[in-house]
Design a protein around this nucleic acid. Structure first.
Lengths: 238, 238
DNA sequence: GACATATTCAATCATTCGCTTGATTATTTG
DNA sequence: CAAATAATCAAGCGAATGATTGAATATGTC
């Protein structure tokens, strides 16, 4: 095991190591787990619920990701919290997704077929959005679970998870444009939100970009709870 | 097949598509093929020889890569020439390799174990190298097959494939430093070249960076045959 | 048109993978 | 210390994968 190796052995071992990463990325469920972990840390139980897998199966997949050093586990009390092993992994996952979308036309077809209405694409250019949010022309809402919002969100966006949104529909301004966003292209939270809002007669659009896309473009992000995000909401709802 | 899909179905399909790329990257042999194709286009036969696989096996792996749209096949006469489907794939492969090297310490260990002599690391900073080559202080040699040199090489580097190098050892300058490079970290051509040169008492070093790394850093590259690269060689050898 | 060459196809087999089920190991709570 | 909770382990099963072998299909050459 610790003796010099021949050329073929070296190549096989080297590419074999690379393949460890590839193998980790070769299962749809593992990719879904990784995508979720790009948003924020989570326990096995929550990941299992989000991906609609059994606990044992989720645990196994997470161990495969851990063996490839893409994620890491940390015991907190009686929970095991999984997180990305490094911020680089998040950047890489995005590059991976972008490559796949570039190469595989099927992904765009899938998206179209699922949406079945072309109206909820990117409403505006990303740079313009921040500006319009600051001017108060647009209300941006982050419909992901609150934990993900805390980890990182678009500056000025309100934390309004889907469940919360349902209860507070009446507080949203009828005279302003609303832009909802969530985890990214394969997350359906923002789609649901837009449908809900439009059903109530509000002018709602979906921002396809995720927080990760936002970061990749070098745009600023905010963490924690926006100071008085609830008050801002109420003010703009008046 | 063309009816609306539920949320779970959508996610499964979307991540399933991503996994197509992951699966393509999950085999050591496929990664080796991809790495070779990052250098230049090649026929199935040559790829089989380089990777030391049977023809049928090579063909099958190439078809997997093609199904994932990472490479494309083009029939030329009675040969089938495979090439990267897009330049993006090359950039991505490099990102993949860099991530793997960052995450998996085993790769660095492997490299050390294979080299077993610490002396042939990056001799100089990349930017400095071009400058020193231009000033004539250093002779850079590209020891890859000539076809790869033609596709792209470091400006000023001489095309001197390993076989050629052996025959023309005496033509190399004894008073200058020689820097050899090849395909990248898992390619052994430059290592062989450096051993060969040192055995003859020449001052030789290995540049670990590949043409792809060079490109990724935004440094200039040259294509085709360097005008009179042989004469330059002879002049500097005088 | 027969032949050689380059590649793919088809069948086969051992291995690995993904998932399920049920038992087991930690950790907190009563 | 027993009960409850969170996660992992272990065994088992059908499906998919990687490689081999030999036949089949193009394409170019004599």
């Amino acid at each position: 095991m610790s003796h010099p190796i021949d050329k073929r052995g070296f190549k096989d071992s080297a590419y074999g190591q690379l393949a460890r990463i590839g193998k980790a990325l070769s299962s749809p469920k593992r990719l879904e787990l990784l995508d979720l972990l790009c948003q924020t840390d989570r326990t096995v139980e929550i990941l299992a619920r989000e991906t609609e897998m059994s606990l044992a199966n989720t645990s196994q997949h997470l161990q495969v990701l851990e063996a490839a050093r893409l994620v890491q586990a940390k015991k907190q009390g009686r929970f095991v919290v999984y997180s990305l092993a490094d911020a680089l992994v998040g950047d890489f996952f995005r590059a991976f997704r972008v490559l796949a979308e570039d190469r595989l036309a099927e992904i765009e077809q899938l998206r179209r077929r699922f949406l079945e209405a072309g109206a909820d694409l990117d409403p505006v250019d990303a740079e313009v959005l921040i500006d319009r949010v600051q001017k108060g022309e647009v209300v941006a809402i982050d419909v992901r679970p609150i934990e993900e919002y805390k980890t990182a969100h678009i500056p000025g966006a309100l934390a309004l998870p889907l469940q919360e949104l349902k209860r507070r529909l009446s507080e949203l301004p009828r005279n302003k444009e609303i832009v909802a966003y969530c985890r990214g292209p394969y997350c359906v939270l923002a789609i649901d939100a837009v449908r809900l809002l439009r059903a109530r007669g509000l002018r709602a659009h979906r921002l396809e970009a995720s927080v990760q896309d936002w970061r990749a473009r070098g745009l600023p992000l905010a963490t924690g709870l926006e100071q008085g995000s609830i008050r801002i909401l109420q003010r703009s709802a008046r």
